[in-house]
Design a protein around this nucleic acid. Sequence first.
DNA 1: GTGAGTGCAAACGCTTTGCACACAC
DNA 2: GTGTGTGCAAAGCGTTTGCACTCAC
Lengths: 152, 152
Amino acid sequence: MTNRMDFTMRDAQINQELKSAGLKATAPRRKILELFQVNAESHWSAEDVYKSLLESGDDIGLATVYRVLTQFEQAGLLSRHHFEAGKSTFELSGGGHHDHFVCLNCGHVEEFFDQEIEDRQNMLAAQHGFKVKAHALYLYVECTREACPNRK
Amino acid sequence: MTNRMDFTMRDAQINQELKSAGLKATAPRRKILELFQVNAESHWSAEDVYKSLLESGDDIGLATVYRVLTQFEQAGLLSRHHFEAGKSTFELSGGGHHDHFVCLNCGHVEEFFDQEIEDRQNMLAAQHGFKVKAHALYLYVECTREACPNRK
DNA sequence: GTGAGTGCAAACGCTTTGCACACAC
DNA sequence: GTGTGTGCAAAGCGTTTGCACTCAC
């Protein structure tokens, strides 16, 4: 009963978040948003999301995943990244702006933020007569996680 | 005669550069390398290179352009960038490391370098136990060039 | 009920690859 | 001559789109 209660409450809350974002509360949208919320800090590609939902027994089309991810990005719920060429990766955009370390060997992503780099970027842009509208900073490293195939 | 002489000398020099890079000196490679050298500071996609060579009357296949660009990148002659999703852009890698301003409206690319940002990146990576193997920093701006469709 | 959302399959843009031919060394 | 390089067409991959059906409101 507690479980059922919990589920209902989370479900209702997610519905509310979708509506606040100006989106109709449909099953695919609810499932995808929940996936990102349950696995906070995670970075998923469209394919990752699709496979994960399939494994959960949810019957969602890949095209819908792409559509929903794009909508979520436009609604500000998710941010899109391009860690690897030719592939988008998404993360919950709740935690404010940050940059990323990306492991060249296993793809592991770690976040960081440095105000000094941010300030310096804006300062340099101003020097060139620009205003920074967006920016991407990826530091490619070799990580030291247990799971990393190139662990030192 | 002077022109012919100039051409021959440049041609010979480019041949030499190709061989130094460990590549056989073939016509497509010569033409592509020359294109980048003549238009230094330029950023080209594979398609750009292909079209430019076609317009010059050179008969080169698109597949060859892709192959040669990749070889040049591996040989260190060119660097590859991903300013836009799903598309590679190349530039002569002669001028040492630098970062880029990219105009969101017209795609214009401008280069910059800041030692302080470089140092800070390495310092932050070290703090996290990483060593930076490569990095990408793109500052997306709205430029003020004559040609820019969104010029202010 | 009505318009927005969905699944499927086909199309898309960029890039890579298989193959027969051509050329650099 | 030999093996690498090339052009062409076909295939690959991530992503988008057209269409008929379905669902949220």
